[in-house]
């Protein structure tokens, strides 16, 4: 029947608009793993920062160059692990959706994600080198959130609210300075796991 055909047309239009403008193969599993690695990284960082401290100076830190180097090492390892598992699970998902992993959409997504993220990352490195350690955890959260919001136009809708949640956490962490690592664990660890599970249930069935 005529109507049937037009209904199908509308479905097809929606499908093509989505597939051509958004990268839909983000894998929830990569979020879950990134969260677990972040919690591990945060614990390692905690051990590095708060080692040999008396209770009077709790949540105040002075970093020497040795532990700064250790912290950077932990950060790099955490990021590397998350990125590798992220690429693995996302590639698997693109195969299932019959999409290409490296096309116009992924490039656009990554570029828009990277612009706030790299600027924030460089700023945090400068702050670390200058010794403003306390601001690093809140700022990484804020900039990560901004990157997610910016990238969300080109991928699944959930990413936008995740980004906003990270920004709010980052601002709270900036106010309650000294609890940076705690907020950091919630933002990068717990939120990633929660959203990962949510997205896995929604899309990977």
């Amino acid at each position: 029947m005529e109507k049937e055909k037009y209904l199908q047309d509308l479905e097809e239009i929606k499908d093509i608009m989505n597939r051509s403008s958004r990268f839909i193969s983000l894998s929830g599993l990569s979020g879950i793993f990134a969260g677990i690695f972040a919690l591990g990284g945060a614990y390692a960082a905690y051990r590095t920062i708060y080692v040999n401290q008396d209770y009077l100076s709790y949540s105040r830190t002075l970093l020497d160059s040795d532990s700064l180097f250790k912290l950077l090492l932990i950060a790099v390892a955490t990021i590397a692990l998350s990125v590798i598992t992220g690429i693995y699970f996302t590639t698997r998902e693109t195969k299932r959706n019959n999409q290409k992993i490296w096309d116009y959409q992924t490039k656009r997504l990554l570029i828009n994600f990277a612009i706030p993220l790299v600027s924030g990352g460089l700023l945090c490195l400068i702050l670390l080198i200058r010794g403003y350690v306390g601001l690093v955890a809140p700022l990484t959260l804020v900039f990560y959130g901004l990157s997610l919001v910016n990238a969300s136009k080109y991928t699944l809708n959930e990413i936008r609210s995740l980004g906003i949640a990270e920004i709010v956490l980052g601002l709270l962490a900036a106010y309650f300075i000294g609890f940076g690592l705690l907020f950091w664990s919630v933002g990068f660890g717990v939120l990633h796991i929660v959203y990962g599970i949510l997205m896995h249930m929604r899309y990977s069935k």
């Binding site: 047309d9 097809e12 239009i13 093509i16 608009m17 597939r19 051509s20 403008s21 290409k100 116009y104």
Partner: peptide, 26 residues
């Protein structure tokens, strides 16, 4: 036509697309 409908749908939401992207998409 389905293909023409598809081309237009894709171009409505993208500033521009190249030939191969359209080919893979449709």
């Amino acid at each position: 036509n389905r293909v023409r409908l598809g081309i237009m749908s894709a171009l409505m939401v993208n500033d521009h697309l190249d030939f191969n992207t359209l080919k893979n998409l449709l």
